[in-house]
């Protein structure tokens, strides 16, 4: 059942550009980006329980690294690779100090890193052009970007699926539930957390590179801004953190809500958007997918894979 559904959805998405609907195509690219960010956030946040409010830093670092290197004339593929690697290296570097922190300390210190990156990119204007932003070579990249981001979304979902079925995933869950006990039982806690962060960062970094390549122009607030940082996390939590399909549903839901509100209401769309997030948090703790009817449906079609 689940294979049929996923197959149909995937097939539809694969042939979608044929219909030549630029508006929806753009919408889907943005949607893929958010799904990827939410899902890759959840590899760390949902499975190990470390709420990484600094996830967007990986995205931004990927975006800037790609942009800067590609502008120097480096080949496209090497630039993508460099963007990803930069995010991974950053993840490894910060994982050692950050994972000494727990709970809210971890979340906030990670968030402070995003703000630090935002201010650094603003101020190191000789390299990053500061608030003027960074421009890269123009070109019409709608279709390749569509497929690249779709591919990446599929990849992150598959990776999440493989994680939930592996011993590694089990170890992550043990960190989330009872870190100290897991440590006493010989789970290499630090290595598990660092690995999770590296996987999570590599996807975000690559997506950051794609994003620069696609939008042609980035500035610090586009990639490191407060709302940009919080949205993927809100999406993952809203959809259902720790369930593979949760962040996907959260991203689809929130982006459709946002798009609808923006086109229907001239004023107060942010307020309405905030209200939706608030109500979900208040009445659906655990996210949309854990609502009883939704959950039952997802279990029946075999899409409720939880760690």
């Amino acid at each position: 059942m689940n294979r049929i559904i996923l197959g149909i959805v995937l097939l539809f998405l694969l042939i979608f550009p044929v219909f030549n609907l630029p508006y929806l195509n753009t919408f889907l690219i943005i949607l893929f980006m958010y799904i990827l960010l939410a899902e890759s956030y959840d590899i760390l946040g949902g499975y190990t329980g470390y709420i990484n409010m600094g996830h967007i830093a990986f995205f931004g670092i990927g975006a800037y690294t790609f942009g800067l290197l590609w502008n120097t004339g480096l080949s496209l593929y090497l630039s993508f690779l460099a963007g990803t690697l930069a995010a991974v290296v950053f993840a490894i570097l910060i994982s050692f100090p950050l994972f000494r922190l727990q709970g809210a300390y971890f979340s906030l210190a990670a968030f402070a890193l995003v703000k630090l990156m935002e201010h650094l990119t603003l101020n190191l204007s000789s390299i990053t052009h500061g608030s003027d932003g960074l421009k890269v070579l123009e070109g019409n990249r709608m279709i390749p970007m569509y497929y690249l981001s779709l591919l990446l979304v599929v990849a992150v979902v598959v990776v999440s699926f493989l994680i939930t079925r592996s011993r590694f995933g089990l170890a992550m869950a043990s960190v989330r539930e009872e870190e100290e006990i897991a440590f006493d039982f010989g789970v290499p806690v630090q290595r598990i957390k660092t690995t999770a962060m590296v996987i999570s960062a590599s996807f975000a970094g690559l997506m950051g590179s794609f994003y620069t390549w696609y939008t042609i122009f980035i500035n610090p607030s586009m990639v490191f801004g407060t709302e940009m940082a919080l949205m993927p996390i809100a999406m993952a939590m809203l959809g259902g953190s720790g369930v593979i399909i949760g962040p996907v549903i959260g991203a689809v839901f929130l982006l459709i809500v946002e798009e609808t509100l923006w086109t229907r209401f001239a004023y107060l769309h942010t307020a309405a958007y905030g209200l939706v997030i608030l109500l979900v948090g208040l009445f659906m703790p655990g996210g949309l997918v854990r609502l009883r009817p939704v959950r039952r449906f997802l279990i029946r079609v075999g899409l409720f894979k939880e760690l």
Binding site: L230, A234, L238, V276, G281
Partner: peptide, 10 residues
């Protein structure tokens, strides 16, 4: 922790 982030952010 998650719900309170959503509610206060909203």
């Amino acid at each position: 922790l998650m719900s309170s982030i959503l509610v206060t952010l909203g």
